[in-house]
């Protein structure tokens, strides 16, 4: 469904991604793991049009994304939950969710809202609270929920478990899996929580200094010696 073909992304002429190719098929959870500065965020930014690639191509089915603007890519069904959450702190929780459904009709929006509140009951309780006053965990849930409000075909999550306590991390991974299974939404997950990610991912890519160095099923990578040594402390 999503095909990234040999892209190069640069910041001030310095490439952060070299010749990166990844594939995401309909219905999958695909994880991208790698340490700090590997280029994971850059990959998602390239896909959503925030940082268009200098070289290479990106396709959603047969539609080229690399020539489109962010809002157009969003309209095609690609939702990007950015690193650091990017919630609208000055707006209420509900307004944040409504903004997620900006391109949807009122009817679709209300339907999706019901499902989102079912997945994230905490947000329902706090719908009128200003989003900036939510706890870190709640803000992360809001960011994911807002991504869902667009009814995307593919949901891209950038380190959703970052900075959360272990219990919340487990909850987030569980929710990601539910969204994939129950709502049939394809997921591209960027994470540093390697074990949990590989456990729920169908397939995964390992990114190191801007290059894909390994790929395979989540299961295989969990048992890969290189991965175990570098990322699982074994």
């Amino acid at each position: 469904m999503l095909r990234v073909q040999s892209i190069e992304v640069r910041y001030d002429e310095v490439p952060a991604l070299h010749d990166v190719s990844i594939d995401v098929r309909e219905g999958e959870i695909v994880a991208v793991i790698g340490s700090n500065g590997a280029g994971k965020t850059t990959l998602l930014r390239a896909i959503s049009g925030m940082r268009p690639p200098a070289r290479g191509e990106i396709f959603l089915d047969d539609t080229p994304l690399h020539t489109l603007k962010t809002h157009q890519i969003s309209a095609l069904g690609v939702a990007h939950v950015p690193e650091g959450r990017g919630i609208f702190a000055r707006q209420s929780v509900l307004r944040n969710l409504y903004l997620g459904a900006f391109l949807r009709s009122d009817r679709e929006r209300e339907e999706t809202l019901e499902r989102v509140f079912d997945l994230f009951p905490r947000l329902a309780e706090r719908r009128n609270q200003s989003a900036g006053t939510l706890s870190g965990g709640e803000q992360q849930m809001l960011a994911i929920a807002r991504g869902l409000m667009a009814r995307p075909r593919i949901l891209m999550l950038d380190e959703p478990s970052l900075g959360l306590m272990p219990k919340l991390v487990d909850l987030i991974f569980e929710l990601v899996q539910r969204i994939n299974q129950e709502d049939g939404i394809t997921i591209l997950l960027v994470e540093q929580n390697v074990r949990e990610s590989l456990e729920i991912a169908h397939r995964a890519y390992v990114l190191e200094t801007g290059r894909v160095v390994l790929s395979g099923s989540g299961e295989d990578l969990l048992h890969n010696e290189q991965v175990q040594r570098a990322y699982l402390g074994m």
């Binding site: 603007k69 809002h71 702190a89 000055r90």
Partner: peptide
């Protein structure tokens, strides 16, 4: 208002 707060994220919401 969303654009005023964060134009990059506003773009991700599909706002031109």
């Amino acid at each position: 208002e969303a654009t005023a707060e964060d134009k990059e994220v506003a773009g991700l919401m599909g706002i031109n």
